[in-house]
């Protein structure tokens, strides 16, 4: 089973993303901030992390860097999930170390299609 951690502070998005992941047959857990994300990653082995960028406290880019700098987690793919939808944002987030980038509001077909390749 593919285990996914969703880091997202908006309850609306969280509910939707968890629902879609559940529909896809993934096992999904959600946390709303960076500290919980890191704590959760220590306790559970995830196959994929979906990371919002604008978060209270540490932002998604920082959390991603912390995780990728840790030898234990550096192979977990992390996808930026963000309301930024500017031209060139995708390149920017990939350059920051993210494995992929999905802009919100999510397009259902695109979202499921892109996540499919992380299925274990």
């Amino acid at each position: 089973m593919t285990k996914v951690l969703v880091v997202e502070d908006s309850p609306f998005n969280m509910e939707l993303v968890l629902e879609v992941l559940d529909d896809m047959g993934f096992i999904a857990a959600g946390v709303t901030n960076g500290a919980d994300a890191i704590k959760n990653t220590e306790n559970e082995v995830y196959d994929l992390i979906l990371m919002d960028i604008e978060l209270p406290g540490m932002d998604g880019v920082v959390i991603q860097k912390i995780l990728k700098n840790n030898i234990k987690y550096k192979n977990i793919p992390i996808i930026a999930l963000t309301a930024y939808a500017m031209k060139g944002d995708k390149e920017r987030f990939i350059a920051e170390g993210f494995d992929d980038y999905i802009s919100k509001p999510i397009n259902m077909d695109d979202f499921t299609h892109r996540l499919e390749k992380y299925r274990k």
């Binding site: 908006s10 609306f12 998005n13 509910e15 939707l16 629902e19 879609v20 529909d23 604008e54 309301a83 919100k104 509001p105 999510i106 259902m108």
Partner: peptide, 19 residues
Amino acid sequence: REFRDPLGSIIGFCELLKR
């Protein structure tokens, strides 16, 4: 920001239902 999140959720759940 305040509008986008709930709207995204409304649209997303519609799409889920349509599936």
